[in-house]
């Protein structure tokens, strides 16, 4: 993997908790440190349902990828992929079609190093270290991998990441830039925290995360729908995450999920 010496890395400090490792802990993973677990405990006090939400979000990722595979998508761009714990995009997609190709995008040093470790012998998946809110750089690095063919539909995954994108970063422009880089028929899978469903818990989460490296910005359903400009939302639209095309009988209380999900198809 080529060294990118153009940017000075922020450094590695395991004393500062990271959202990627927090998510790993909530999913029952062991790729985390004391500081991450301490943050997770505070998170759980604000939102006792957090483990379920993490599990549901991961399950949504799987359903969304399989939905895209069913719609002919064979290449994926996973934005803010984090620490791949279990059920990674390339594993899910490849069970459906071994030719599937994936480019993961993350910025945090440890998450990137961990992904490299897992993907180092995999010719069809790669991680690029870029800030997903800077699409030009992400797309340039992605093109450099040569893994994705931008003349063919791409499955763009922004699952559980946009609640870390502040309004100043102009999330609509970010989504639009990815949309404009991919051809018609490409898909966007999206999930993010909202205050619409459990306002009190959401406020608690925002408070807990305010002082971390990854403050959070919940969005309303209307705001999320606005991000899908230029996409046709596939049924059932922007919904509480467990209601997005559940597998079999849904047993989870949708309103306690605290998080919306949607998939759109580029017109």
């Amino acid at each position: 993997m080529a060294e990118q010496a153009g940017r000075i890395p922020e450094g590695v400090d395991t004393g500062r908790p990271s959202a990627a490792r927090l998510y790993d802990y909530l999913l029952g993973g062991g790729h985390n440190f004391a500081a991450d677990r301490a943050l997770a405990e505070r998170f759980l006090r604000a939102q006792p349902n957090a483990r379920t939400i993490a599990r549901l979000n991961r399950a949504f990722l799987r359903r969304a990828v399989l939905f895209m595979v069913d719609n002919g998508i064979r290449q994926f761009l996973d934005l803010g992929s984090g620490i791949p714990t279990v059920g990674n995009v390339h594993e899910i997609a490849r069970r459906a079609d071994p030719r599937a190709r994936v480019v993961y995008v993350d910025f945090e040093e440890v998450a990137v190093a961990h992904s490299r470790l897992i993907l180092e012998d995999d010719p069809q998946a790669e991680i690029v270290q870029e800030d997903m809110t800077r699409p030009e750089e992400v797309l340039a690095a992605t093109r450099e991998t040569g893994l994705l063919d931008f003349s063919e539909p791409v499955g763009v995954l922004a699952v559980g990441v946009f609640h870390f994108v502040p309004p100043e970063a102009d999330p609509r422009a970010v989504v639009a830039a990815y949309r404009d880089a991919v051809p018609g028929g490409s898909h966007l899978a999206f999930s993010q925290f909202t205050g619409d469903l459990q306002p009190a818990e959401m406020a608690g989460i925002v408070e807990v995360m305010k002082k971390s490296q990854n403050p959070m910005f919940p969005r309303t359903r209307a705001e999320i729908e606005g991000l899908f400009a230029g996409f046709d939302l596939v049924e059932p639209g922007v919904v509480p995450l467990p209601l997005w095309r559940p597998e079999g009988q849904n047993t989870d209380d949708p309103d306690r999920a605290g998080i919306y999900a949607a998939v759109g198809r580029k017109i």
Binding site: E3, A5, H31, R116
Partner: peptide
Amino acid sequence: DAFDQQEQIKVAIVRAKQRVERTLKVS
């Protein structure tokens, strides 16, 4: 399983640190 995962994340940390140092050196 937890040991394995901790082992893996430690390797990732070491590599990330090496990379940071290398990048700093190049720069």
